[in-house]
């Protein structure tokens, strides 16, 4: 009896953890490499969710929605970086620019979609699977599968490719990397676009599970900030671990202590920071 609930909670937690991972990975790398506290990241997530909903509910195809939100949030990220952020590489000023973008993008979304919560689930992923006495939702299982695939892809990108290596080197010392012929401006633009795409994809994957509503962006932005700090700013491995921990913390408390569900991730962050101010995996 108690075990079934625990299993469900863990499955939900892992699924949510993968969504957190997609969302916070970009934020963490943008943080570590470009030194931008990117307040617009939550808006990318929100827009990814709305676009994913619109496209997939009309075409009846989840993948179409994901691809559409990936391309549109990628384009948005490119425009933001190329037209605004690139102009002034001054961290606090850039923070203000992203705050302005957050207010603007969230409000435009609200004007277009209003206060309603939209949700659309592809029919083939509806329903549950019974695993003995445990009830498992098909879609959450699907999120885990997609998450694992993406996790492997991300791991290969960062550890086995030239670009991944340059990004990691840039996080270590973004000035010295240029002394080896790397045009850091290009890397900045690239990483901002990739981060935005990941946030958009995360948003579109969340829609069939939790739906999309106007404050989704800001809520998840705060979670993502917490996760990035838990993992250690700019630490890719740390962000991965922290995302899963945060997902588990939130879902476990949602099952066992609902009043802790909202603050759980922040409590986790507080605990980690008190013990290790530089984050879980940063030395």
């Amino acid at each position: 009896m108690a075990l079934e609930i625990l299993v469900s909670a863990i499955i939900d937690g892992v699924a949510l953890g993968f969504i957190f991972l997609l969302l916070s990975l970009g934020l963490s790398v943008i943080f570590g490499l470009m030194r931008i506290v990117n307040f617009a990241h939550g808006s990318m997530f929100l827009w990814g969710a709305y676009i994913g909903y619109e496209v997939s509910s009309r075409t009846g195809n989840l993948l179409a929605g994901i691809l559409a939100s990936a391309s549109i949030t990628g384009l948005m990220g490119f425009l933001i970086e190329y037209l605004l952020l690139k102009r002034l590489r001054e961290p606090l000023t850039q923070a203000i620019i992203t705050i302005g973008l957050m207010l603007l993008l969230d409000r435009v979304a609200w004007l277009r979609w209003g206060d309603i919560t939209y949700i659309w689930l592809p029919p083939e992923l509806e329903g549950t699977i019974l695993l003995g006495p445990t009830i498992i939702y098909k879609y959450r299982l699907f999120v885990i599968v997609v998450g694992i695939v993406l996790l492997i892809a991300v791991y290969i990108f960062f550890n086995r490719t030239r670009y991944g290596m340059i990004i990691r080197a840039g996080i270590d010392d973004r000035e010295m990397i240029q002394a080896f012929g790397v045009n850091i401006e290009r890397v900045f633009t690239g990483i901002f676009v990739v981060g935005s795409v990941l946030a958009g994809v995360a948003g579109s994957i969340l829609v069939p599970w939790q739906g999309v509503y106007p404050t989704l962006g800001i809520n998840y932005l705060l979670y993502a900030f917490a996760i990035v700090v838990i993992g250690g700013v700019g630490s890719i491995g740390g962000t991965m671990v922290a995302s899963l921990l945060a997902g588990l913390a939130q879902q476990l408390s949602a099952y066992y202590a609902p009043y802790l569900a909202e603050p759980s991730i922040f409590l986790l962050m507080l605990a980690v920071l008190m013990l290790r101010p530089s984050g879980l995996l940063r030395v």
Partner: peptide, 20 residues
């Protein structure tokens, strides 16, 4: 009205870009 935050956002961006 409802558009106010949109304009506020644009305003912040414009101010910091023109008057860093």
């Amino acid at each position: 009205g409802g558009w106010s935050l949109v304009f506020v956002g644009v305003l912040f961006i414009t101010i910091v870009l023109t008057m860093p």
